[in-house]
Design a protein around this nucleic acid. Sequence first.
DNA 1: GTGAAAGCGCTAACAC
DNA 2: GTGTTAGCGCTTTCAC
Lengths: 339, 339
Amino acid sequence: MGKKVTIRDIAKMAGVSVTTVSQVLNGKGKRFSKSTRERIIKLRDQYQYVPDFHARSLIMKENINTIGVLVPNVSEPFFGTFVEGVQQVARQEKLIPLIFSANRDPKLEKQYLEQMVERSIDGLIIASARMTTEMINQALINRDIPYILFDRNYDQEGARVQTDDYHGGQLAAKHLVELGHQRCLYLGVTNITENFKQRLAGFTSVLQAHGRHFDEASDVLRADLSRRGGYQAAQAVVDSGATAVFAANDDMAIGLLRGLRELKIRVPEDISVVGYDDIALDEYVYPQLTTIHQPIFDLGIGATKILLDRIHNQHRDETVEKFPVRLIRRESTGPCHMV
Amino acid sequence: MGKKVTIRDIAKMAGVSVTTVSQVLNGKGKRFSKSTRERIIKLRDQYQYVPDFHARSLIMKENINTIGVLVPNVSEPFFGTFVEGVQQVARQEKLIPLIFSANRDPKLEKQYLEQMVERSIDGLIIASARMTTEMINQALINRDIPYILFDRNYDQEGARVQTDDYHGGQLAAKHLVELGHQRCLYLGVTNITENFKQRLAGFTSVLQAHGRHFDEASDVLRADLSRRGGYQAAQAVVDSGATAVFAANDDMAIGLLRGLRELKIRVPEDISVVGYDDIALDEYVYPQLTTIHQPIFDLGIGATKILLDRIHNQHRDETVEKFPVRLIRRESTGPCHMV
DNA sequence: GTGAAAGCGCTAACAC
DNA sequence: GTGTTAGCGCTTTCAC
């Protein structure tokens, strides 16, 4: 316990200068005698000397091998899986991922962002629907830190990984139309971020193309983007008389499933439910959830790889990497049984 | 974009010395004239000057207001909720929580730990069943960093938050005995960590006290500590002929629920299932899971508060704070229907 | 082969 | 009221 051993301590004990120790320990000590080198190495091991991180980064300015990851909430399965993808690449590349979970609080997000910048991270992955590019740049204080955006507005600039939400919405609608449903509902938030808007737009377009009536005023149910939100919306869903619901994400859908069950509504016999994301949980709820699959884990991997590329190659272009979505049919959807 | 503005730049522009700037910006500038102070503040805002973190911590050595949180896996609901508890306190206390998710990989855990130490965090919360106190101390390189243990072996030293796992096991057994079950199974890992051992011991003790036959060789089913593990164990559970199962945690129980459903076994009519933890999901699965409640969120809060106390007051005692567990009866358990 | 010296950006005694 | 100076622990030129 106690005083930290510094490079000077080692130098003194080895009877050499700090320069020598520094050089040797950084693999630049070819010019020193073998005996000196060995003496220093031995001392380092013996005293468990580790160079001070701050002193080091004060000089070196880069190559810290740290990336920051800002997500709304790690405890949501969606972001949890995303973070796992990031971590997988991080492990391979010997990167340290600093995870920040900002609880969708813009002020906190900004604060965390500033913290990361101060701590001289090499790059950033930002999954926040709330922050505008402007806010991000401001927090980055014009420092030249590469970052990748994820799960956010389309209308912003910046490199990012993205899935085709519009197509996802289309897939959901097509599936329900094929099952014969006449009246379909969208359950979710309508205007918060572009990705949700896109899902809804894709959904609407297919519905209308098949002659279904759908307008936002009557066929969109707003609810909190959470299991609880979906749960609480169950009664409204039933009251609407619709036979199918497309939920903005799986969490809502799972909540809705519970709500419907408690109201003695059978899924899919009475009402079909489609979710969005394909979180790991979907197979464990009852009935198993039909959903639009997003490759969440791969998105984490992809985002990290792109980031690394930008860190090392100083790309200034705004790559947009698209990942495919697809329908996963499980048990929560079925043919329309309305007479 | 580009050069970072330093304290010297500000000083030059304000026509004062760096000391003046430093003092003013750190709220220690009472002795300076108002005009000087205002000039400096204005310049800082204008150029968005932020003191360099590393330069700062090189001198200050503490009061960085950062704590490290090491968990096996943020994407597991249990740890996700725990981390949320930590974050709540962190927000209130203006602490920055650095979250590390080490995927139960001891080497990674050690590496992350070292990283945290280097980055001069003020304290640590370690949730790892794998690391021994010795390993932790080694990674901490004898630096005097306060840390709190969570969800791990009892037989280690160190301050920690803890729940009474033995009692939890007892509660589960008592519940099943009261429902008339004769043959009960324990599904889980048997000997990895003390908390699981305790659950099993408590469970066993009550069963035997009530004259039930229970021995580890035949009545303990081993499976992976995950939803998948529970799922895969379903057939074995059925084959055993038992009418009730106590799963080591909720994730396993939820997996088991799915497995039993697919095997057309009714829960709770044919088999009762009790989980452990009371993760938020329990109310959303079908049937809703009867479980032993651990105050996960509160444990996060508690751990953080104790840590803060230790950071500020330099306690050297090894506080062990106990949190209560209780049975939450839901739908997955019922009277034994065996003839 | 080795080391002295400069300096990264900042804070804090201690002068003036 | 304000500035000088001395580091924090480290890396890196450059001289010997």
